[in-house]
Structures are given as structure tokens and as C-alpha cells.
């Protein structure tokens, strides 16, 4: 490069802040902000539901009495003393509900973290490494996908003796059966990200493979990770409830599923004791609904085509499309 061409006036290096040097404001959002979804009614309702249930599970047990106190007022309806009535053995349903919500949330959260970590390990490492590692990891996650989840969970839970079946066993079983689909999604996304130029640039700069994965690739997978995490929390809470309802849950813990299990054993349905089985069912429904709504909002980050146009506040009005339209909009 021996010759330098003269620059035409105005095209020389412009001073900072001069018009033309800054990029036009684009719709693309990056960095940490890209991980946060746009504020939509869907997201607001979802977060509201999740927050309400979480607060109930978090603070409720502090305010409630002992859920195991047995009274001689079995199966009475809601009243001033017992807002949600009592069970067959006179235990307060509200007290039980707070404990059960906390237990379900705990299991959901642990399973979510574990399953997401597992899927990230298998999906991202496999997708980045390629070759034999990828083949092996893909085979593993495909096998896990094909195995029907709930029957396997039932078999494993049944295999562990009831007295050893703590909540950690349930968490492990649910995490081990629930990571596969997330791993496939993450693998696909990793395959797309790892061929981008900035990953190549990091390699040229001499970054180590684990650093390329953790620092260059993983942050760009955060929206997918978050969505998969929320999804696995929902799945975990639902399957834990299913397991406990079948009597295969953790033996020493109380969750929404165990509440339903005892309600069913106490013939709550036949005796019209709706206050016993409706509240736990409603909480499961509210939690699942809220998390699903949050997940839908997260999906909009991953797939911008789901975003409906005209949502953004600073969308310029298309007033100049036709003179008629312009007149109308100024008149209005």
C-alpha cells in the first residue's frame, strides 16, 4: 500500500459525534439488553403470576401455622378461622398450601438449573467441538428424547425404596430425564453461532476453546438458555406433581402433588371438599400459565419474526405515505 488516495472533502475522518459517524439507531439490540424481552402485556401477566406464586411460597410459610397440627374439625369448609377449610384430619389447608408451594418451587428451580446446565454442557460443547464428540452427545440426547419421560421417571422412582426417596432423588431423576430437548435446541443454535466471524476472530486472536465457548458463544445463547430454563422449570413442577400424585414423589417433603395425593386418598372429590383439591390445582395452573407466558416473551427475542410490528413506542408514523393520510392525521 504505497499510494494514498486523497479523500474527497467531508469523507475524511469525521470528528466524534459529527453527523454521519454514529450508526443509525437500529432495531437490533445487543449486549445484556438483548437478553431482556420487550415489555408486553403477555410478559407483565406472566411475571405477575409467577411473582405472586413465588411470594406466596416464600413468605407464606413464615406467616402460616404448623401445617401438621391435627384438629378434631375434619373436612370443614372455608371459614374465618381456616380460610381454606381443613383436611380430613383437621389440618389447615392454607398452611399446607404455603408449604407445598414452597416445596414445588424448590424442586422446579433445582431441576431447572440442573437440566439447563446439563443441556448446555451437552449441546454447546457438542455443537462447538463437532466430529466424534458431537456424534456421541447427539446420540445420547436422541436416545433420551425417544425414551418416554414419565414412564421412565416412574420406573426409576419406583426402583428407589420409599424411605430413601428424598427430594434430591426426585430432582436428580427429573433433571436426568428432562435435559435432552433443550440440548438439541442449544446444539442447533451453537452450530449457527460458531461459524460467525467473531468466533473466528477470537480464534485468530489465540483464545482457548473453553474461553471461546464461555465468553464468545455462551452470552449469545443466553436468550435460548433462559427460555429453555423456564420451560424445564414448568416441566419439572408438572412432572413432580404427577409423580407425587401417583405416590412416587419424595417421601419426606410436601409439594402440591403430595397435597393432591392426600386429597385423592381422603376422597375429597367424592365428599365435595373442593377447598382441599382446587387450591393446589389452581396454583399449579397459575404457575404453569405464568411461566409459559414468560417463555413466549423470551421466544420473541430468539425469533424476532414473532414480534408484532407497531409495538415499539418510537416507531415513526407513516404519515407521509399519501397526502390524504397526512391531512387526516394532522386534522386528528
Amino acid at each position: 500500500m504505497t499510494t494514498q488516495l486523497p479523500l474527497p472533502d467531508g469523507l475524511a475522518d469525521l470528528p466524534p459525534g459529527a453527523p454521519g459517524t454514529t450508526a443509525p439507531p437500529s432495531g437490533r439490540r445487543t449486549g445484556w439488553r438483548a437478553v431482556l424481552p420487550t415489555w408486553t402485556p403477555k410478559l407483565a401477566i406472566g411475571l405477575g403470576l409467577v411473582a405472586a406464586v413465588a411470594l406466596f411460597g416464600l413468605l407464606g410459610p413464615l406467616l402460616a401455622g404448623d401445617p401438621n397440627t391435627i384438629r378434631n374439625i375434619g373436612l370443614t369448609g372455608p371459614s374465618g378461622d381456616h380460610w381454606l377449610g381443613t383436611t380430613q384430619t383437621g389440618q389447615d389447608v392454607l398452611d399446607q398450601l404455603t408449604r407445598a408451594t414452597r416445596g414445588s418451587l424448590q424442586i422446579g428451580l433445582f431441576v431447572g438449573v440442573l437440566a439447563t446446565a446439563l443441556s448446555a454442557l451437552v449441546g454447546v460443547v457438542g455443537g462447538y467441538a463437532g466430529g466424534l464428540v458431537d456424534e456421541a452427545f447427539s446420540l445420547l440426547s436422541n436416545v433420551m428424547l425417544v425414551i418416554p419421560g414419565l414412564p421412565l421417571v416412574i420406573v426409576i422412582s419406583g426402583f428407589v425404596p420409599a424411605e430413601q426417596r428424598g427430594s434430591w432423588t426426585v430432582v436428580l431423576v427429573l433433571a436426568l430425564t428432562g435435559w435432552a430437548s433443550a440440548a438439541r435446541v442449544l446444539r442447533a443454535q451453537t452450530l449457527s453461532v460458531r461459524n460467525r466471524d467473531y468466533v473466528a476472530a477470537a480464534k485468530v486472536a489465540g483464545e482457548k476453546p473453553w474461553r471461546v465457548i464461555c465468553v464468545e458463544i455462551l452470552p449469545n445463547l443466553l436468550p435460548v438458555l433462559a427460555s429453555q430454563f423456564v420451560f424445564s422449570v414448568v416441566a419439572a413442577i408438572l412432572s413432580e406433581a404427577g409423580l407425587s400424585f401417583l405416590g412416587l414423589g419424595a417421601s419426606n417433603s410436601s409439594t402440591l402433588g403430595t397435597m393432591l395425593y392426600f386429597a385423592q386418598n381422603g376422597f375429597a372429590l367424592q365428599r365435595d371438599a373442593w377447598w382441599w383439591f382446587v387450591p393446589p390445582g389452581l396454583i399449579i395452573a397459575a404457575l404453569g400459565c405464568g411461566l409459559a407466558l414468560v417463555n413466549l416473551s423470551l421466544d420473541e427475542i430468539i425469533n424476532p419474526r414473532l414480534r408484532r410490528p407497531g409495538r415499539r413506542r418510537n416507531t415513526p408514523e407513516k404519515a407521509d405515505r399519501s397526502p390524504n393520510h397526512a391531512v387526516r392525521s394532522t386534522a386528528a
Binding site: R28, A34, D197, A201, P219, N220
Partner: peptide, 24 residues
């Protein structure tokens, strides 16, 4: 070292300009 073709793809959207220079 190498300069890539597409400057819109060769910088990681997640990281600041400082990161891109500090790492090497």
C-alpha cells in the same frame, strides 16, 4: 493477524469495544 470481510459479523455483539481490544 487477520481482518475479516464483514465488520458487522466480526465483532461480538455482546461485548464492548474495549473487550475486543483487551483480549488480544
Amino acid at each position: 493477524q487477520m481482518v475479516f470481510q464483514d465488520p458487522f459479523a466480526s465483532l461480538n455483539p455482546f461485548h464492548s469495544i474495549e473487550h475486543h481490544l483487551a483480549r488480544p
